[in-house]
């Protein structure tokens, strides 16, 4: 399939649509979905993904505008360009959905995730865990004589890297929030 033909000066296509729609390349996209904070809205979004067989790699949701009753759902998903476009169009059809942003294509963005990691151990391993935590700027938020709970914030890859290092040092349990993301710069 060929790429869409785009005329000079046309405003109707985003640069995103320069890619061939029906390509086989699997891409990872971060979507920010602004929704009315009403009963069942998360079920609608999740039901869409399960019902149509789309992937969810990470999902974060919380109210972001108390007076306007708006929540922001951040979804990291994977699929071919055609599937990603379908996901966005399908999300846009849901009545309480106000806006769907594809942060992956709408310009630079920042993504952050918070994780809590429980690491148990004694002696050298305990010292090494604490040293690595310092390098990763992770905080100790709970401590006993044979355990730590670390709090770490960062891009998902950084958390993955920290968790990989903690595993041989006695990583017992981990909780992650999922990705929160915003576009860079002054616009929304």
């Amino acid at each position: 399939m060929s790429a869409l033909q785009i005329k000079k000066g046309s405003t109707k296509h985003s640069a995103y649509n320069l890619r061939p729609t029906f390509s086989d390349v699997i891409e990872t996209h971060t979507l920010a979905v602004l929704v009315d904070n009403e009963a069942g809205v998360l079920a609608r979004v999740i039901g869409l993904f399960s019902g149509r067989g789309y992937n969810i790699e990470s999902l974060t949701v919380a109210e972001v505008d108390h007076t306007g009753h708006l929540s922001r759902i951040t979804i990291v998903t994977r699929g071919t360009p055609q599937v990603i476009e379908q996901i966005k169009a399908q999300l846009g059809r849901i009545v309480p959905v106000h806006r769907v942003h594809d942060l992956t294509v709408e310009g630079p963005s920042v993504e952050r995730e918070l994780a809590l990691l429980k690491v148990t151990g004694a002696g050298d391993k305990r010292v090494e865990a604490l040293r690595l935590a310092d390098i990763f700027r992770a905080n100790v938020v709970d401590s006993t004589l044979d355990s730590f709970v670390f709090e770490i914030t960062g891009a998902p890859e950084k958390i993955d890297a920290f968790a990989d290092l903690m595993r041989p040092l006695g990583l017992l349990e981990m909780a992650r929030t999922g990705v929160a993301a915003l576009s860079r710069g002054a616009t929304t």
């Binding site: 399939m1 869409l4 033909q5 729609t21 029906f22 055609q82 476009e85 379908q86 169009a89 399908q90 846009g92 059809r93």
Partner: peptide, 12 residues
């Protein structure tokens, strides 16, 4: 319905 477009067949 925008989701109908390019759902099954590539549209020029």
């Amino acid at each position: 319905d925008p989701s109908s477009i390019n759902k099954v067949v590539h549209t020029d």
